[in-house]
Design a protein around this nucleic acid. Structure first.
Lengths: 353, 353
DNA sequence: TTGTAAGCGTTATCAA
DNA sequence: TTGATAACGCTTACAA
């Protein structure tokens, strides 16, 4: 039989309610009492039962991370970041992989909320921009944060990077190396980041005085296959690009595979760069020059924003880095980064503890 | 305010207990009543509150997956498998990444059990072989299953593949291609699979009448870096191997990277094969010949074994496949597989529903 | 086959 | 600053 609050109160010689007060960091507990209770808790190895807490209070100390992420590395990293912050706050994270295309999406989410008495939710793309979900959450007055949303909403907390700027910097870097024909592989268009990265690419071309050439831009789905296929198309052009910028690293790996298959030497004949969404650059040869996205930090920040929620609704911009990798160099060389935050207060509600 | 069981019972014109009976699939409910209740549940969109269920019954409908996995792809796949089976059974999975080296490991786990009223636990390596954890679980009489344990224990349910046999088949395959000097990169020795795979390699050499040469075997930690380093060592030998067998795919990717860097052509000058623990073969070029481990299926099986637990303690051997990939071939060619299961009944306890 | 009443372990209310 | 007592929403006795 496991230890319960009554056992602790007996051991400490106080009432159950007093133990509860200590556990919840309430005011109006004398220092002596608090210490006595804490000692008893430690001695007995007591852990409060979360089901009972959830039922009696109405917070469950659980939040959910809702995602539909085609890339395991990315999902795992986001999860790790969220989880770290949750543990720090005494919370538990429930991870909820969902199918963005599912017709019963809203029902599933409602079920989760009812069943688990969620205290808050972190939405990741493409759910960030699902109006039905956001309306339902607002209706139920459930705190939520969006991670990398397509559009910023003043009333909704968000953690994100500046994809446009990052893609612009990367493209400008390629131009600075002398490239004039730069191929681009788009990401899955259901994710806002895809359009943002393309926009950055176009912006940099503009600034460099280079014409945008639609034949150099190919669609992709953030996976290896589409990267391979796009590269095959691009390299088969009469006048092929001298560099290819893939919207994420799995596609960049596909580009590399195709280049290798076609005996196009990287990087002497073709530069390949990407967005390191998933840390795959560590696993793929040759080491890619990438925009490093702080995926774990985004997860951590999202949870952090959730915890400060009704007090402060914040839009937090996280820094990215341009990592130039050179197989001959010993170390990676970050050549740029950006980032800053802005915040705004809106309304009062029972805060996360 | 969310709907509760009383609302449903009113709508259906029956008692609360009857609704509860229907929800829990108990016997002794007339078909007509059951249908009436189910209709009310559906109409109201009722979802039982899990905190209340956990408190009143003493099952939480939650199980935990405990892991410390250096490979995100692997972890994600195991999780996906476990989760799938959990959802089928109306359960929720809590994933618990832990640090195998932590001194407070046992405390953490106890905390989780007390707090979440876990109905069961799935242990993955290296926790599968942690005597302290297993003793504590036994003491508390908590159901658990081990996934890929180092040693089979008659009294403990387990899901696993035959690593020895798989490594043996792969090595034999290399021998059949004419290789006589086959390098081997070991995995992290904290994981039992590492020793098992090495054993299979040695066994196959034996059977082929080839001498075991310790200079051809290098240590590794299941990551890209150690694979790179091992390959550098092996290829620098006076008499280098003509094939390298890496104990997992991330290390195989490292081997490929080094080969490429040293201008050793794959596969004409060097064959590289591995264990596809993480599905990375899909992401790495060139496509590797691998032992495909059914990682998702292992997760699914582990949860499945947990659900049938006190009724039947089963040791389930899952099939692996040898996937020969040839860049010129259109499709992968599985050349072998194995698998079968045995089971045994031990004692009675309240079953999972 | 159905219903009634007594908890489950905690927090909230209100009084001391 | 503390403590008694009533919820919280459900399941498990035990009756009917």
């Amino acid at each position: 039989m496991t230890i319960k609050i009554g056992d602790v109160s007996q051991a400490a010689g106080v009432s159950i309610k007093t133990v509860s007060r200590v556990l919840n960091n309430e005011k109006y507990v004398s220092k002596a009492t608090r210490e006595r209770v804490e000692a008893a808790v430690a001695k007995l190895g007591y852990h409060p039962n979360s089901a009972a807490r959830a039922l009696a209070g109405d917070r469950s100390f659980q939040i959910a991370l809702v995602y539909d992420n085609p890339s395991p590395y990315n999902a795992q990293n986001v999860q790790a970041g969220v989880k770290t912050r949750c543990i720090e706050g005494g919370y538990r994270m429930i991870s909820q992989p969902s199918d963005a295309g599912s017709t019963t999406l809203l029902d599933e989410l409602c079920g989760l909320i009812d069943q688990a008495m969620l205290d808050g939710i972190i939405l990741t793309p493409p759910f960030t921009d699902n109006a039905a979900i956001r309306a339902e959450l607002a209706r139920r007055d459930i705190s939520y944060v969006t991670l990398s949303p397509a559009m910023l909403d003043h009333a909704v907390a968000a953690a994100f990077i500046d994809n446009v700027k990052a893609a612009e910097e990367m493209t400008t870097y390629l131009v600075s190396l002398g490239h004039r024909r730069i191929g681009f592989v788009e990401g899955d268009t259901r994710y806002a980041a895809s359009a943002q990265r393309l926009a950055g690419y176009r912006k940099a071309l503009d600034q460099a005085g280079l014409d945008y050439d639609a034949t150099l831009v190919r669609p992709g789905q953030f996976d290896f296959e589409s990267g391979s296929a796009a590269a095959a198309d691009l390299l088969a052009l009469k006048n092929p690009p001298t560099a290819i910028f893939a919207s994420n690293d799995e596609m960049a790996a596909g580009v590399l595979a195709t280049a290798h298959r076609l005996r196009v030497s990287v990087p002497s004949e073709l530069s390949v760069v990407g967005f390191d969404d998933t840390d795959l650059a560590q696993v793929v040869w040759p080491p890619l020059t990438t925009v490093r996205q702080p995926v774990r930090a985004l997860g951590y920040a999202a949870a952090d924003l959730l915890f400060q929620l009704p007090d402060k609704v914040e839009q937090r911009l996280l820094p990215h880095e341009l990592i130039v990798r050179d197989s001959t160099a010993a170390n990676d060389v970050p050549i740029g980064h950006c980032g800053q935050g802005v915040s705004e207060k809106i309304k009062d509600r029972k805060p996360f503890p």
